[in-house]
Design a protein around this nucleic acid. Sequence first.
RNA 1: GGAAAGGUGGCAGAGUGGUCGAAUGCGCCGGACUCGAAAUCCGGUGUACGUUUAGGCGUACCGUGAGUUCGAAUCUCACCCUUUCCGCCA
Length: 428
Amino acid sequence: MLDVQLLRARLDFVAERLATRGMTLDVTAFQALEDERKTRQTRTQELQARRNALSKQVGQLKGKGEDASAVLAEVAGIGDELKANEVALAELLEGFNAFIAGLPNLPHDSVPVGRSEEDNVEVSRWGTPASFDFEVRDHVDIGTRLGGLDFETAVKISGARFTLMKGGLARLHRALAQFMLNTHTDEHGYTELYTPYMVNAASMYGTGQLPKFEEELFSVPKADGSKFYLIPTAEVPVTNIVRDEIVPLDSLPLKFVCHTPCFRSEAGSYGKDTRGMIRQHQFDKVELVRIEQPEKAWDALEELTGHAEAILQKLELPYRKIVLCTGDMGFGAAKTYDLEVWLPAQNTYREISSCSCFESFQARRMQARFKNAQGKNEVLATLNGSGLAVGRTLVAVLENYQQADGSVRVPAALQAYMGGITVLQPAN
RNA sequence: GGAAAGGUGGCAGAGUGGUCGAAUGCGCCGGACUCGAAAUCCGGUGUACGUUUAGGCGUACCGUGAGUUCGAAUCUCACCCUUUCCGCCA
């Protein structure tokens, strides 16, 4: 969430920055709410201080065996007003906090202003899309002919937006994840993690999925009436490692890589990407997460994005890097780069990684702090990015490495993970 | 799943209704002593929020929530979690 102090001190500035995201902040309403909060809180604390002082007197008098009835009478007179103020303040603060928790992050100055994905800006391209001297097939056709992709059975087992992979294809999928993990740990210095796939509401709140985006999550009810949420990305369990922590300066930065399944309801995307495994309820992703000092966060975003790009380069998959405009960014992001991989069958670039800097937006909600050089507690900065989405990378490999006879070459970087298989051959 | 014990500051650990935000020890920071270090001694050392030009002042927090009371770490209720033993289990 945003810094309350910033809201109080520079309300107009905040409103202006939020406006670039297409978000109207009702400055007058906020100011009114804030004024009321201030009066109410001051009054409540005054009354509490008075009550505490008088109660202390009662103790002293009784200790000396003196009569305390006069003081008791006075403190009794405070009771009703105090109670009323406490209740009113609690309600007010609840509303106030809910309001602030509902505000998205402010975009960084370098983020292009725009309304939708139409206004995103391409930063760079890498690689040249191959030209095929035959009619390219999409990954569904390729995978089916390889006998490795079976959507019909997945539908029988679960329903739409699930995939069943078999044989060499399942292995290729596993190889991709292994390759990504090894690269990030061995070459980029990230620490590998294994985390829970179901988390509590506090964790979802910490990274910003709650309270606003509950409908995008799957959940599992518990006997006590609460629920577990299935993680929509490893960002959630990994970033929440530092929730309510004060980490020492010399342990920073924390660089984590984590391979997990991700579960998304995809509510609101009905009819979108219904064919194939582009948009699934369950998909694997290798996620990079960094916990940084705020002043190093922006360099870290460039570096992290580079680490995700390295995977695409090693796989020799053409891609482009774009910067999301203000209107297309996620709720908590201050800046986001998307990496889009070339998909020949769609004749276009499709998102395969999203790398974001959240500044202190998530850390503030999570009370994730570090001891700075002056020994003061300071809120951390968090970043994350896909490195990469495994399912979509598989799609990209199938489509970019396809051959006229329906076979698919195994990228050189993956061959060591494939037990010597260099080509996936179609089934008969 | 059954039984028992227990959740207090960075850690250990006192505290069973009133100057308790909390003894003491350890750790950490500063200082003294020392050529330097160790030992010793002295002082300091939680978090969040509000308010204040400043120094400060105030409020809340002893697992969580509710309750009793003028006053709760301490009493009551509910819940959560941890540990140990037993059972079951990949």
